[in-house]
Amino acid sequence: MSVSDATTALTEELAARDDMIVCEGVNKWFGDFQALDGITAVIKEREVVVVLGPSGSGKSTWIRCINRLEAHQEGRIVIDGVELTNDLRNIEKIRSEVGMVFQQFNLFPHLTVLDNIMLAPIWVRKKPKGEAEELARSLLERVGIPEQAEKYPGQLSGGQQQRVAIARALAMEPRIMLFDEPTSALDPEMIKEVLDVMKELATSGMTMMVVTHEMGFAREVADRVIFMEDGQIVETGTPEHFFTNPQEERTKLFLSQIL
């Protein structure tokens, strides 16, 4: 099967699924600097998309616009049929459907691991406490650190903290997970344990959008790779197509620098 055949097959298969994230001509400026320049993309249900690009290319800004940690200024973003506008109700709805994992983990240092995970289900999802605890423990089991439940984040290693952060995001039972360079702040020996959790998540059918520099992860797990530069989407394609036969000069240059 040739690369183009695979792409066609994937396109057909994807077309049958629902749209999860739709971006149309999204623009954003920071003062004079245009961070996002006409971003148009659709991410389907159960799709795993890896966003690549040099630093400062707007990857993080885009992903942060998707759950409105930053507000986009022009264009439209629609998540699971709900448009992201100034509407309070839409923002609430989208935030509880989109989980996010940060580069710096951003765990709450004054709460135990268990409380970190339980807090949002209790107060945002309004779950009873017992149920939330059960859920939290099962999630800790899933990310492989059930024994750390009573500790404080400061007592865990970076990899463990990032796994707790993933569990915290999953506790909201999101339909979409966003990862903003989840392994960049980790020591090399801890990267694998986090990537393993993410792979497991991908195979379970979660819609995922991942900003990362882990090419191995992109090759192995991604359904699609998006390459960005200067706030624009330069090239989109399956990993095979992207890594073996990139079309654009800028993509080739980028790949030659990092591979």
Partner: peptide
Amino acid sequence: EASDAVGF
């Protein structure tokens, strides 16, 4: 950001 992201 983390608090916003989990929907508080």
